[in-house]
Structures are given as C-alpha cells and as structure tokens.
C-alpha cells in the first residue's frame, strides 16, 4: 500500500475517534442543558450541538474518501448508492404500512442515522471494501 494511503488511513482513524469523543461530550452537554432549559431558541441550539459533532464526523469521513485511491473511491460510491436505494425502499415500505394502518409505530428520526451507518457498513463489505 502506498505510504500516502497508509498515512491517510492513520490520520482518518485519529480524526474519527477524536470527533466521536467530541460527539459523546456533545450529547452529554446537550442532555444536561435540555434538563434545565425551557422550550425556545436556547433549547433548539442545545439540541443542535450533537448534530454539529455528527456533521464533523461526516466531514472527516468525506476527507478520507477524497484521499483514497480510485478503486477504493468506486467501492465507497457504489456502497453509498446501494445504501440510498435500501433506505428509500425501507422508508417507503414503512411509510405505506403506517399510512394504511397495517402497523402503528412512532416515527423517530433519531434511529435513521444508525440505520444508515449500519446499512452503509454492510454495503461496503458487500462491495469489497478494504479500507
């Protein structure tokens, strides 16, 4: 493997762990603030703090994607396309099941991100990810 790609992978792991540590801290801070703040702009800002950390994680991942070689980038792009397809099918299916009263469940968007991350991970493995 080229030294540049090895360094990029090492840097990515450090950056990812750092931003995930920030995310954990952000969730803790937001949860603490949510207990004491009334509904309003300040509560909205507190709710956005973890989302900013997630945005940081996405930025770190995209930067790593840009440093990959062309084959690795193709694998990631194919996996992203497959993930989007699966997400569309599942979201639509659940939507129609709920709309027609087949199932009754709460829409909770907080689970959508972990679902996408897991699906993307599986799609990457399926596409032959070796990053």
């Amino acid at each position: 493997m080229s030294q540049r790609i090895k360094k990029a992978r090492r840097r990515h792991l450090i950056e990812l762990f750092s931003v995930m540590a920030i995310y954990v801290a952000a969730v803790f801070v937001a949860s603490s603030l949510a207990k004491v703040l009334d509904k309003g702009p300040l509560l909205a800002i507190a709710a956005l703090i973890p989302a900013l950390a997630i945005a940081g994680a996405c930025y770190v991942s995209f930067r790593f994607y840009q440093r990959m070689d062309e084959r690795q980038q193709r694998i990631q792009a194919n996996a992203a396309a497959l993930t989007l397809t699966v997400a569309i099918v599942i979201a639509s299916t659940l939507g129609f099941l709920k709309t027609y009263g087949v199932f009754s469940f709460e829409d909770d968007f907080i689970w959508f991100t972990p679902f996408l991350i897991i699906t993307w991970g599986l799609a990457r493995r399926l596409m032959g990810d070796d990053c």
Binding site: M1, S2, I5, D69
Partner: peptide, 9 residues
C-alpha cells in the same frame, strides 16, 4: 507504492 494506490488495487 510506485503507483500511489493500495496493494489491494
């Protein structure tokens, strides 16, 4: 290394 790609590529 010479091509600046991964060994897997």
């Amino acid at each position: 290394e010479k091509l600046d790609v991964s060994r897997q590529t």
